[in-house]
Design a protein around this nucleic acid. Structure first.
Lengths: 222, 222
DNA sequence: CTATTATTCAAATAATCCTTAGATATAAGG
DNA sequence: CCTTATATCTAAGGATTATTTGAATAATAG
């Protein structure tokens, strides 16, 4: 291979990798990936949750698909998208970790969004204490995400139903709430709400995404 | 926090993460990161190796710095840049792995750049066989990168000097060549060159970047 | 002051993002 | 087969932002 050709080959390989980076370069696309990390969703569902137009959502999903990050399947008039693999979820987690580690602005934005700090429980600790029956595990994500896969033994009480369903939650043991991942606000809100109602509650370290990536047991269809 | 404010906080957090993705969205910036993963370099060195203008190289390094991926230190008239942390190298590796895993074009581009397949040796296997004295470990990166850190016991013969220095390499034992990382072409070229000269040679799985990320022993200043 | 190295600026080109509006695909009913 | 409804995709336009180049400016050493 000539030096010229080699340089072209190198540039085109780097451009391929850059295309993946490009896919990670828009807030809306990152939000879509975040949602898809919880299970497959139709375009309309994604658009509604991300507060975007359907057309725009569809266009961004095409970009993600061209970059190899998501895949879609048609079922009747709907198209359901999902992440192309677990490595995509890992890539997303690495991106966020690097962001908060080296960018003070990202760290501040995370603190502003998640609100006041909340006590955490580690993954291994939760697994042990759940098996011993010492804790109630509470999944506060939307029901559809719980159904797509959840921590074994967890009960599903989506955050917006939590105020009305407080009496379903035993008040004798510690409650450990979790949601999507490290930068999902639901579990933070849930723990603060439980505290205001005089319950003992903590948040699982990170969330379901990281639980699954750590290879810990998962129940449900997902 | 009001629902409006919360949505703004979420968007600004996602925008922070998107800024990191944006930094990974240009071939030139990916090449700079790849070089910096081997050790610190001045702007001029980077520009020359990446075949870019100094001005543009500097501008792209500012972007990488704003994204929190690199840091710089001034020494006299020069400014030396380096990766902001090991997590950045891991992020880069994850990006490339996802690219080749899910994009046929990326896989093809990698094959076209790296050339014909070459037999590999795993990291753990190399470590064991090097300790037993069964192999010669050959670092074919530029000398400055060898000096910044290398596999213990490796000898440095940069690829462009290899044809002239073949007699320095023992021909009784297997030679294992390595270079920067999974998509660095030097070790591939070195193994093919050694084969043409009737030596037994293989390539280390991936390269030095992944060796270091795996927590295996490293010699030198790096 | 001069040489070296790096950064910044202005301008041209190119790419991206979002919206609106229309096109396409599928299912169900007549 | 044709219509209607639903869901998704795509095209065009306008605002914004990114990339690169060449030249000017800043920082440092001697």
């Amino acid at each position: 291979m000539s030096s010229e050709t080699k340089h072209e080959a190198k540039t085109s390989l780097l451009s391929e990798f850059a295309r993946v980076g490009q896919a990670l370069a828009s807030p809306l696309r990152l939000e879509l990936l975040d949602l898809l990390a919880q299970g497959e969703r139709s375009v309309e569902q994604l658009a509604e949750t991300a507060a975007a137009r359907v057309g725009n959502t569809s266009a961004q999903l095409q970009r993600l698909r061209d970059a190899g990050l998501v895949a879609g399947r048609r079922d009747g008039t709907r198209v359901y998208y999902r992440l192309a693999g677990d490595d995509v979820a890992a890539l997303l987690a690495a991106l966020r970790a690097t962001g908060v580690a080296h960018r003070a602005e990202a760290d501040r934005a995370a603190a502003a969004y998640l609100g006041e700090d909340v006590e955490q429980v580690g993954r291994e600790e939760l697994l042990a204490r759940a098996r011993a029956g010492e804790v109630t595990v509470l999944d506060v994500r939307p029901a559809v995400e719980y159904e797509a896969g959840h921590i074994p033994g967890a009960i599903s009480v989506p955050l917006d139903q939590l105020p009305a369903r407080l009496d379903e939650i035993p008040d004798s043991v510690l409650v450990v709430a979790y949601c999507r991942g490290a930068y999902c606000v639901f579990a933070h809100d849930a723990v603060r709400l439980l505290h205001r109602n005089r319950r003992r509650a903590r948040r699982l370290e990170d969330g379901f995404l990281e639980w699954k990536l750590a290879g810990l047991p998962v129940a449900g269809a997902g």
